[in-house]
Simulated assay, not measured.
Amino acid sequence: MAQKYRIYINDNTLFITREIPLQVEKIQQIEVEGFGFENFYKNLKSSKKKNYLLLCKNPEGVFKKIKKELTVIKAAGGLVTNAKNEFLFIFRNKKWDLPKGKVDKGEKVKDAAVREVEEECGVKIDKRGDRVCKTYHVYEMNNEVILKRTSWYHMTVKGSPKLIPQTEEGITEAAWVAPHEIKAKIKNTYPLITDVLKSEQLL
């Protein structure tokens, strides 16, 4: 059984866990009893960057209850390296990001991950490896609260191919980034992306 879940809502993070996570920043605890995600989400609109904590004996049960309140969308993406051990980043919506996109109906998640990377960056994936992690991100679309579950996979390409950003998807730049340059990029990225990189000890 999973010990903890982390849901990203804009610049806010909700932890659902059995024990208080090691945090540098302050964290606000919320009572599990009577907790409703939609009310919590609406109240967040007036909140600036904060961490919230649901401390409970059964994180998986609480998370499943939240999922039932929301519309779940599956997405997949890649942590891609080239022959120089550089990492593939994209620039979209004025932030650095990793390539990812929605899983099509009937499509396998791991296949969607490769397809999205190839479409968004104009590269050919040579090998897809194991899953890096899953991330959860909440946003609003057409007055509906969406929970996007993204599965991230290791991927490699041959050589160091030229990148072609998919401009129709709002990607203005795709770049190979050396490990020592990653810290500069994460100054302008999402907490979710920082966590994917941390899971691979790249930060």
Score class of each variant (00 low, 15 high):
residue 1 M to C: 04
residue 1 M to W: 03
residue 2 A to Y: 10
residue 5 Y to N: 06
residue 8 Y to Q: 11
residue 8 Y to I: 11
residue 10 N to A: 12
residue 11 D to V: 02
residue 11 D to G: 05
residue 14 L to G: 02
residue 16 I to S: 00
residue 19 E to S: 15
residue 19 E to W: 04
residue 20 I to H: 07
residue 21 P to D: 08
residue 21 P to Q: 13
residue 21 P to L: 12
residue 24 V to R: 13
residue 24 V to I: 12
residue 25 E to R: 15
residue 27 I to R: 11
residue 28 Q to T: 14
residue 28 Q to S: 15
residue 30 I to G: 00
residue 32 V to E: 14
residue 33 E to R: 15
residue 33 E to Y: 03
residue 35 F to L: 12
residue 35 F to A: 08
residue 36 G to H: 15
residue 38 E to C: 13
residue 39 N to V: 03
residue 42 K to L: 13
residue 43 N to I: 02
residue 44 L to V: 09
residue 48 K to I: 12
residue 50 K to V: 02
residue 50 K to I: 02
residue 51 N to W: 08
residue 54 L to N: 03
residue 55 L to R: 05
residue 56 C to F: 01
residue 58 N to C: 00
residue 62 V to Y: 04
residue 63 F to A: 08
residue 64 K to I: 02
residue 66 I to H: 02
residue 67 K to I: 06
residue 69 E to V: 07
residue 70 L to H: 04
residue 70 L to Y: 01
residue 71 T to W: 01
residue 72 V to I: 13
residue 72 V to T: 12
residue 75 A to T: 10
residue 76 A to D: 05
residue 77 G to M: 10
residue 77 G to V: 12
residue 78 G to W: 04
residue 79 L to P: 11
residue 81 T to A: 12
residue 82 N to W: 09
residue 82 N to R: 02
residue 83 A to G: 02
residue 84 K to Y: 07
residue 85 N to D: 13
residue 85 N to P: 02
residue 85 N to M: 05
residue 85 N to S: 09
residue 85 N to F: 09
residue 86 E to A: 05
residue 88 L to R: 11
residue 88 L to T: 13
residue 90 I to V: 15
residue 90 I to D: 00
residue 91 F to N: 03
residue 92 R to A: 09
residue 93 N to F: 10
residue 93 N to G: 01
residue 93 N to D: 14
residue 94 K to L: 10
residue 94 K to T: 07
residue 97 D to Y: 07
residue 101 G to R: 06
residue 105 K to W: 03
residue 109 V to C: 01
residue 111 D to R: 08
residue 111 D to N: 15
residue 112 A to Q: 06
residue 113 A to R: 07
residue 113 A to V: 09
residue 114 V to S: 04
residue 116 E to Y: 01
residue 119 E to H: 11
residue 121 C to H: 01
residue 122 G to I: 10
residue 122 G to P: 05
